[in-house]
Design a binder for these strands. Structure first.
Lengths: 356, 356
DNA sequence: CAGTCTTTCCAAAACGTTTTGGAAAAGGTC
DNA sequence: GACCTTTTCCAAAACGTTTTGGAAAGACTG
């Protein structure tokens, strides 16, 4: 039943070939000093020549560590997550490989929830720790992992979680605050927000940035100026965009929780003969490749996913190695990417002055 | 040193709690008939309640199978590969999870070649089989895997490889042939090709499609009408594009090995006041998201990466399970996606007639 | 009742590694 | 030469699972 693949060379055969015990060969390869330098070299050379690679199963059994770090990807929102996933995975894998570990990817399907899958991979000691991304407001995965004291790092933050845990996040609040300040400087007074369900924490934080900046300037975000779409559905998104654009007074600046939303909003605006950026400023978040090619280019923020993933992986390795207390949560800034989708507020909205 | 994480429940403890032997519990959970129905149920219930999950290490050791399938991603061309990687990985993982397997991702860095990494993960019996993508003309990975009789499936094909092996590919030759026929119907007579290094097999097959269609119509592709870039470098790409556009007679239709090339070509054409599609038809391949948003939209082919990945994974599972002979290589068609970057050949190139 | 068959369970071995606790040999010291 | 130390090696145990080859007990057969 098992595939062909000629028998693999194991420690037993290698050691008997060398006329040594398994112990000695094992310790020679591990570089211990209780085997003579000459023997050590001889063993190393033989192992190299014969292509011996220790079985991970054996090693795993005795050490209790698998050498794998897990990532559970939910299948449902695949469209939503795809844009980043490749970059994120490459970053994780890159950092892990440097430490001799690998990345194990499991999928959560309808039948088996993400928490189930986590329980499975951890209790089956298939992984030594896990990476969790796309934080949710009341994140069952995070509670579970903290409860069980399983090594993990969250990409994102859960604001309600009071117990300590390790996370890495890009500061969406600061980014949207900065964008809002800039737009206020440009004369904008009527803002709108196009966002996803608040069950994602990133939408929560970005919104908070917008609102806090408005508050600092005595402005506010009326509840009807917030349009939220549940999942990424083209029609729902078009309706939400149209709703925002039919407000009176119409917002002159709309912040979008992601570039995908921004691109659709610009499209809908175009179909209503609302010009971006002269009539409407739009700002996104993520800097997906499409944003550079859309017309106009979408002004946005870049969170350098791959680099973040490298950080997440390195933090997790530290946690796994037991230095939990040495690793502090980290909040990093997003890079502002100015393109063509924002500009000064349209003249008609300003206090009466001569038209330029 | 090892992270906290309370001790995990193992077969030993579970069986002593139940007052049964390890053997009986193991066999009860596996559903063997040599344990009474009553006991079997009692064991199952206890295992469920206490959250017992068998250690993969123990199972691995005795079965010789890890339950993992490997994918090695090269780090160097990360930009090049990123566009697909997420989708490809999701497809693989999805199909594997259904069969109770998982995906293990390793990275090939500068120090360690892809073949090295393959050797490592296979000999360390970390994976039961591997997926190889981005086939190369003389692919060292493929030769190695065939030599070693390691279960694998190649996404792509290696034309020079005479020994049998399992592959899954999208038919780039048919796609480019079809596109060329269509363009010839539209009056085009002067073609160009913008492509990557021929060391990738997909460029080879796509080019073959263009050339064979031209030949059928008594046309040919002069060598100077082929511009090839080594890696994805913006400047080199701009130069190659400009070179194609400065040919006399200038091609009226240029096929591009990938959408990324097509988008850049359209951009360069724009900067030279060459209008797409009225002066120049451009056709890409891949249907990356950007292609839909570029102006004009890029006419291209979709290879449904995620679906391909599901197929690749299922084929590999069959191979691992020993049905190597039952699984045949598969060549599938790409979907033609008509957008705005192609059209009739410009009138000036046609035999003298009145301008429309 | 003796013998056979079935049902239900289990002890022990095997998988490949690392670590523990020596043992043998060699070298030094008085 | 007797004793101690250091160097170099190794047998055995342990990790958690599955499978093999029974054994014990009960049920059936004649």
């Amino acid at each position: 039943m098992a595939a062909k693949g000629r028998r693999k060379l194991r420690l037993k055969e290698l050691s008997s070939d060398l006329g040594l015990s398994i112990t000695t060969v094992s310790r020679a390869l591990a570089g211990y000093s209780d085997v003579s330098a000459a023997t050590r070299e001889r063993v190393r050379e033989a192992a190299e020549r014969s292509g011996y690679i220790p079985s991970r199963a054996g090693r795993m059994l005795v050490s209790g560590n698998s050498g794998f770090v897990g990532l559970v990807v939910p299948l449902r929102d695949s469209h939503f997550i795809d844009a980043f996933l490749g970059e994120f995975i490459v970053g994780l894998s890159q950092a892990l490989t440097e430490g001799g570990r690998d990345l194990a990817i499991s999928t959560a399907t309808g039948k088996r929830s993400e928490v189930d899958v986590l329980r499975h991979v951890v209790n089956g000691q298939q992984v030594d720790g896990v990476v969790v991304n796309r934080a949710l407001m009341r994140d069952a995965r995070v509670s579970y992992l903290i409860d069980q004291q399983i090594p993990f790092v969250l990409h994102g933050r859960v604001p309600d979680e009071t117990r300590p845990y390790v996370w890495f996040d890009t500061d969406g609040t600061a980014a949207f605050s900065e964008a809002t300040e800039m737009l206020i400087d440009l004369g904008h007074r009527h803002f709108g927000l196009l966002t996803f369900s608040e069950s994602f924490t990133f939408t929560h934080f970005r919104r908070a940035g917008l609102e806090s900046a408005l508050k600092r300037h005595g402005l506010s975000l009326p509840s009807e100026a917030v349009a939220s779409v549940g999942r990424f559905d083209e029609d729902e998104l078009a309706r939400a965009s149209a709703a925002l654009l039919s407000l009176r007074p119409r917002p002159t600046a709309i912040l979008c929780a992601t570039d995908a939303l921004a691109i659709k909003l610009v499209e809908v605006a175009g179909s209503l003969s609302i010009n971006v950026p002269s009539d409407l400023s739009v700002i996104g978040f993520d800097n997906v490749p499409v944003s550079a090619y859309a017309t106009p280019g979408i002004t946005t923020f870049d969170q350098r996913i791959q680099e973040s993933a490298v950080n997440v992986a390195n933090m997790l390795v530290q946690v796994i190695d037991g230095d939990v207390d040495a690793v502090k949560p980290r909040l990093v800034k997003a890079d502002f990417i100015a393109r063509g989708s924002h500009g000064p507020a349209p003249a008609v909205q300003r206090p009466a002055r001569a038209a330029g």
